[in-house]
Structure formats: structure tokens, C-alpha cells
Amino acid sequence: MSRRRRVGIAGAIVGAASAGVATAALAKRYAVGRIRLRPDPAANEPFGELRGREVAVTTSDGVRLHVELDGPEDAPLTVVFCHGYTLNLDSWHYQRRDLRETHRLLLFDQRCHGRSQREGVADRTIERLGEDLYDVLNAQVPGPCVLVGHSMGGMTIMALAERHPELFGDRIQGVALIATSAGKLAEITLGLPALVAKAVHFVAPQAVAVLGRRAALVDRGRQFGSDVSFLAMRLLGFGDSRNVSPTLVDFVDTMIRSTPTDVIADFYPALMSHDALGALDVLDKVPTSIIVGEKDWITPPDHSRAIAEVVPSARLEVVPNTSHLVQLERPEVVNEELRDLIKRAQGEKR
């Protein structure tokens, strides 16, 4: 074959590949464009703009946590919100919006997330998050409280229960665990066939570690939003992806992209090794609500059911056609359950 012909064939292959990539990009952009043109009931929702009285809490190991207090200061009970992995306190937008007029709320950014300290933070474990919550309660919650945790925030509450069980039934009078797990996250299938899921779990720790070592480079690329991240968040974060608000999807995507890659990498092993099922019987001392989306592939409903078996007095709510971000996707369901939990906490002295 002549050199000219080989070059011609190579050029044709490259041209075809480039055309394919370009076509895919145009199709993707067209799909996102069509989604954004649909009616968006949350288009004017002030995501990330709700603010309260800002204070700083320094933990027992010297880390500064960003804390916000909202609602009436003289309320008899404080509702404390613990957010999830890669998120921040703004992920409780709808709960804050609907409860702030009638309840004293405390929201905080977990260490290395949001506006809390990142630099020089060595301890990035679930056990340490439990101690952080203990420090926050001692600093800013003078009376009884209800704890609400989503995903990693639920694990934070479990770590507190393991280390400070004496608080439950005394200062802590109610608990809500939302889309969380007491352990064995490394065994979930992610909706994949068993062999594929096993391979993913085998490769993921090494892949995450590599990303962590190249965090600065990765973060530079993550700062720019993309159609790919929008579509992925829409599909994976929400159960009813066809009808979810594009504004809400952008809001969550921005939160996640603002969490540095090294933070994501450092907390990942702690999440995978988390095992607190044996410590949860203490939650039977207080009214407990367990809420999970029916289509949650990150912390599947079976993980919530496992918690409910250990805490037989707990109320389990599986929300239909909803995924991991249930507090944002179906806030009316979550808020109704929280209001009921608060009433039970104030009315039941065990």
C-alpha cells in the first residue's frame, strides 16, 4: 500500500472519529438545550441564598467549622442538620425554607466541605465527624435537639451514637436518618450486574486515590460546568429525572463541583469502611424516622431497612420514584415527616 493511500485512510478514520465526537457533542448539547426549555417551577427558587446568623465552632482537634443558626432563638428545641458527602449546608434548602419561621435550626458545613476549614485537616474519618457534631452541640445547642442527617450526615449521627450514647434520650430527643447506610457500602451493586459491580468496587479505590494525588489538575477541569455533568446529575441524583427542575440539577452540580477532589478522595475510604449497625440500638430510646428514595442507588432502600430492623420503634418511609437526593426531590414528603418527628420528640419523654 502506498504511503499516500495509508495517509488518506488514516485521515478518513480520524475524520470519521472527529465527526462522531462532534455529532455526539451536538446531540448532547441539543438534549440539554431541550431540557432547559421545559417549564421549570424552581427557576426562581433562591438556592444557596438563604442565610442565618453565622458563627464559627472550633472542634476539639482545632478545625474551624462554619455554622449557621436560623429561626427563633427562644424555641424550646433545636433541629440540627448534617449534610451529605460532597454537599454543604445549602443542600437543606427546602427544609430550611419551610421550618425556619417556627423552629430553631442549626446547619453546619462538615469539615473540609462548604465554608468549613480544609487546609491542614488531617483527620477525615466518620468517627471524627461524630466528634465534630458533639463539639457543635456543646457549643451552640443549649437545650434539647433533634438530629437530621442525609447520607454521610446520617453516618455522622451514627458515629455520635457509638461514642456518646448517653446523649440519646436526654439532650437528643429525636433522629431522622435520610438516604443513609450503617455499613457495607462497598457491596452495593450500583444498579449494575453483580460481576460488573464487583469489578467497579475493586478498581474504584485505586482510581479515587490517583485522582486525589492529582487533585489540583482535576479541580481545574471540574470548575467548568459541562453538559455531561448536568446529564449525569439529572440521571443519577434524581428518581424522576424527566421532571426534575434544571435549576435544581445545576444547583446540586455546582455544590458537588465546589468540593475539592482531594476531599472526595480522602473521605471515600471512610465511607466504604463505615460499619455502625451494632451501635444503633441506642436510637430506640428516641423517636426515629428513616427516609429513603425507592430508586436510591447510592444508599439503596435495603440499607434503610437494615437500620429499621435494629431500631424497631423507628418509622420507615420509602418514597416512590425518588433517588438519593430525596430531601431536594421530594421536600414536601421529607418536611412532613420532619414536622411529625419534631412533634413526637416534644411529646414523648422516654
Rank of each mutant, 00 (worst) to 15 (best):
R36P: 03
R36E: 13
R36H: 02
R38C: 10
D40T: 04
D40Q: 04
D40G: 09
D40P: 05
D40C: 04
P41T: 00
A42I: 01
A42S: 07
N44Q: 15
E45K: 01
E45Y: 07
F47N: 05
F47M: 03
G48D: 11
G48F: 15
L50H: 03
G52Y: 10
V57P: 00
T58P: 00
T59D: 05
S60M: 02
D61F: 14
G62Q: 07
G62K: 06
G62Y: 12
V63I: 14
V63L: 03
V63A: 04
H66A: 15
H66P: 05
H66D: 13
L69S: 07
L69I: 10
D70R: 07
G71S: 00
G71I: 00
G71N: 01
P72N: 04
E73W: 06
A75I: 01
P76D: 11
L77D: 08
T78F: 14
V80C: 04
V80Y: 03
F81L: 14
H83N: 11
G84Q: 09
T86H: 00
L87D: 09
N88F: 11
L89T: 07
D90Q: 05
D90I: 05
W92S: 01
W92D: 01
H93T: 04
Y94R: 02
Y94H: 05
Q95I: 11
Q95A: 02
R96H: 12
R97W: 09
R97H: 11
D98V: 00
D98F: 03
D98M: 00
D98L: 06
L99E: 08
L99G: 06
R100N: 11
E101L: 08
E101C: 05
T102S: 14
H103P: 01
H103A: 00
H103L: 03
R104A: 14
L105S: 12
L105H: 13
L106I: 07
L106Q: 03
L106T: 03
L107P: 08
D109M: 13
D109R: 11
Q110K: 04
R111S: 00
H113G: 08
H113K: 08
H113V: 10
G114R: 06
G114Q: 10
Q117D: 12
R118E: 13
E119I: 14
G120A: 09
V121I: 02
A122F: 09
D123S: 03
D123N: 04
D123T: 02
E127A: 14
R128F: 02
R128Q: 05
L129E: 01
Y134D: 13
V136G: 06
V136N: 10
L137K: 12
N138I: 01
N138K: 09
N138E: 08
A139Q: 12
